[in-house]
Every structure is written in structure tokens, then in C-alpha cells.
């Protein structure tokens, strides 16, 4: 691929007090790529996401999105440029119906920008988006209160919220965690569909088997450093990776 990278992370570091949570991490991401980020607990995966979306301020290093420096922008402006993330801990409005949970992203200035100055019918858009991520319209799942929905639906709701923003880059933070095999299997096609639409995706995952099936490339993190970067099979063979993380599982 000769395209300019859509996302470029350059020597990103973060200190929390005396702890170096992330140390000089750099990588480029091509448009349309699906990048998996794996690593043991506390290896800095979520910190990396928080730094890219700037929910946390980097200690040093820079992030470029579509060639534009974004690491000095506040998080809401980064979202408006076209990066949407999901959170590991889903925290919807439990007392509201699922489709009302979609109102906040649909109220976003990015929506108005994309729609050319007006918002449109938010309730209808919410129902369409939820159908897209598998809220069966005939069963009226979208009208149930979020508190009554199982974890699998809440994760899909989280995905639908990101979809609502029509981003160019999706960052999915442990979307599969806490889900059953069947639930994961039902979400994978949605991710494939996003990818078919030419969107770029970063997935942070602990569920390696499912991730390797769909990822183009994998980055392995350990103690805040990037220790391997490449196609899934190659990374699995890497000695450093085996000893740091996969070794114990494979052995």
C-alpha cells in the first residue's frame, strides 16, 4: 500500500507519577486496515487508546490523523474529526430505552456537519442504527430499557453509538470481553461489515482467537512498550511475544 497513513502515532509516552505506562510507542495505520492490539493486563493498551483520543494527556509524543496533528486537541474535537471509540466498561443510561441511549451521539455536532446543517429525525435514525447492530426490529428490543438488556446487547449498543458518528477510524476497546462465544460470533459480522465499508479499525482484545481471524495486523504490548508488530501468524512465532504473553498460554 502506498497510501498516506490515516493514523500515525509517533513516540507516544505517558507517565503516571513515577510509573511509565507507555514508553515511546510508534506505529502507522493504513486506511482500511484492521489492527489488533494485544498484551497482558496493565501493558498499556487502554492507555494507548486514551492517549490517541486524548482522554488522557500524553507526556510526550505526537499523534497525526489524516496528516493533521491531533495530540494537542481536546477529545471532543478529535471525535468531530472522525475518530470514534467504545469504552471497555459500558455505562449506558440504564433507566432509558435502548434507542434513547443513541440520542447523545446523534446530537453530536459531527452529525449536523455531515448532514449539512440539520439533525433529522433522531429517533428514526437511532432505530435504524440499532437494527444494523442486531437489535431485532420485529422483537422491539430497541424499546426495552437498557437496564433490562443482556451484556451482549449493551456492547452492541456501544458499537451503534460509535457507528452513529460515522467515523473513519473506529477504536474498539475490548468489545468482546464478558461476552459468550455465541455473542462474539454475532458481533464479528458487524465488524466485518464496517470494514467492508472501507473504515479503519483498531481493536484492543484479550480474545485472541476471534481477533486473529479478522485482524490484518497485530501489535503486541508489554510493560508499556511495543514488542512486536506484524501479521498475526508472524507475531505468534515471535520469541519475545511467546515469553511475555502467549508463551504461558501456548505452553
Amino acid at each position: 500500500m502506498t497510501d498516506a497513513p490515516i493514523l500515525s502515532v509517533s513516540e507516544l509516552s505517558k507517565n503516571f507519577g513515577g510509573v511509565r505506562a507507555l514508553n515511546q510507542v510508534s506505529f502507522d495505520l493504513q486506511p482500511g486496515e484492521l489492527l489488533g492490539v494485544i498484551g497482558p493486563n496493565g501493558s498499556g493498551k487502554t492507555t494507548l487508546v486514551n492517549l490517541i483520543t486524548r482522554f488522557v494527556k500524553p507526556t510526550s509524543g505526537e499523534v497525526f490523523f489524516k496528516g493533521k496533528k491531533i495530540s494537542h486537541l481536546p477529545p471532543y474535537k478529535i471525535v468531530r474529526l472522525g475518530i470514534a471509540r467504545t469504552f471497555q466498561m459500558v455505562k449506558p443510561f440504564y433507566q432509558l430505552p435502548a434507542y434513547k441511549n443513541m440520542i447523545i451521539p446523534l446530537y453530536s455536532p459531527r452529525m449536523r456537519q455531515l448532514a449539512g446543517g440539520h439533525y433529522g429525525d433522531r429517533d428514526a435514525m437511532a432505530l435504524d442504527l440499532l437494527e444494523e447492530v442486531g437489535f431485532e426490529r420485529d422483537a422491539h428490543v430497541a424499546y426495552k430499557t437498557a437496564g433490562a438488556l443482556p451484556q451482549g446487547y449493551l456492547k452492541r449498543l456501544e458499537l451503534a453509538k460509535a457507528l452513529a458518528l460515522q467515523p473513519d477510524l473506529f477504536i474498539l476497546d475490548e468489545l468482546f470481553s464478558g461476552l459468550s462465544l455465541a455473542e462474539v460470533a454475532s458481533i464479528v459480522p458487524i465488524i466485518e461489515k464496517i470494514r467492508m465499508a472501507g473504515k479503519t479499525i483498531i481493536m484492543i482484545e484479550h480474545r485472541l482467537k476471534e481477533l486473529f481471524r479478522i485482524a490484518d495486523r497485530v501489535i503486541v504490548m508489554n510493560y508499556g512498550e511495543k514488542i512486536a508488530d506484524g501479521p498475526a501468524e508472524a507475531v505468534m512465532e515471535d520469541e519475545a511475544v511467546k515469553s511475555a504473553y502467549l508463551g504461558t498460554e501456548a505452553g
Binding site: Y76, V79, I103, S108
Partner: peptide
């Protein structure tokens, strides 16, 4: 209204509101 929902969202989960590109 939806506007009020955004306001309540800031109380409930401000990160999710920021994540919608809204300046809280």
C-alpha cells in the same frame, strides 16, 4: 427533550458525552 438528555448525560457519564464530539 434531546437537549435535556445531553445535559443529564453529562451528569451520568460525561466521558460518553465527550465521546460523541460534544463540548461538555
Amino acid at each position: 427533550s434531546d437537549y435535556g438528555l445531553v445535559l443529564k448525560g453529562i451528569n451520568d457519564n460525561d466521558r460518553s458525552v465527550i465521546n460523541a464530539g460534544i463540548n461538555i
